[in-house]
């Protein structure tokens, strides 16, 4: 029976993931990409290269840092270092997502390929939706969402590149502000573990604090020190509560 049935449901789950392109996070990300287009147009980067960058780098903060390095005339080594340091966060994000996505038969190569589609939006979306998808179909669901989202944004960037130079500053400013506000609201909304709330609050304070103390490594330090603190505090609170009669 089941090969045909299984094929069909696999396609259906891929399409369910692809439909995520119409979700609030995807729409907000696309608006952020319109904002990114205006940044690259101001920097004088040709549209073909912006499309290439969108597909191959994908993470928006990494691209913003890459573009700023290019604008400041940084060497390849300096640009590589800046982007590498800013992208360390992708490792714990992927590491937290993989146990949710895979089943015992998921091949490692497939996870390596699909990990390319992880950036903040896809991560927030997947952490929120994947638990409601049957485990055997989670990888397919995520592939459908990730591939569609990247492809759609590559097309979008190519199309709107020439239009954005004309945006009034008020619109450009609001487009830029959407990204952090959306991340904030959706992480709080989708948190399924108490530790997430604590980590979010501590990270918000630790980010600027470490930017002040050690601007080169601020995000990394805020994550490791702030995250560990949040984990320790939540764990302590949990064990106290369990110990109480």
């Amino acid at each position: 029976m089941d090969d045909v049935e299984d094929e069909r449901s696999r396609l259906a789950w891929f399409l369910t993931g692809a439909r995520g392109i119409f979700s609030l996070p995807a729409v907000i990300l696309m608006l952020s990409f319109v904002g990114f287009c205006s940044l690259t147009a101001q920097a004088g980067i040709p549209p073909e290269q912006v499309v290439f960058m969108t597909g191959i780098v994908w993470a928006l903060p990494a691209k913003v840092i890459l573009v700023s390095s290019i604008m400041s005339g940084a060497s390849l080594a300096a640009a590589f270092l800046a982007v590498t340091l800013s992208s360390v966060r992708l490792m714990p994000m992927v590491a937290a997502l993989v146990p949710e996505l895979r089943n015992s038969r998921t091949p490692t190569w497939l996870l390596l390929v699909l990990s390319h589609f992880v950036a903040i939006t896809a991560w927030v979306f997947a952490m929120e939706r994947v638990p409601k998808v049957p485990r055997d179909h989670r990888v397919t669901f995520f592939a459908g969402f990730g591939i569609t989202l990247v492809a759609a944004n590559m097309v979008l960037v190519g199309v709107v590149y020439h239009l954005v130079a004309e945006f009034p500053p008020l619109v450009a400013g609001c487009l830029f502000f959407l990204t952090p506000i959306y991340f904030l609201a959706s992480i709080w909304h989708s948190a399924r573990h108490p530790v997430i709330y604590v980590a979010l609050a501590i990270g918000l304070v630790a980010g600027p604090l470490f930017y002040w103390i050690a601007p080169e490594f601020d995000i990394l330090l805020a994550g490791v020190v702030g995250g560990t603190l949040a984990w320790g505090a939540e764990r302590l609170w949990r064990s106290r509560r369990e110990a109480r009669p």
Binding site: W123, I187, G223
Partner: peptide, 10 residues
């Protein structure tokens, strides 16, 4: 999870 969330928050 805590480290990933704190990084994104930063």
């Amino acid at each position: 999870r805590a480290v990933a969330t704190a990084l994104v928050a930063a």
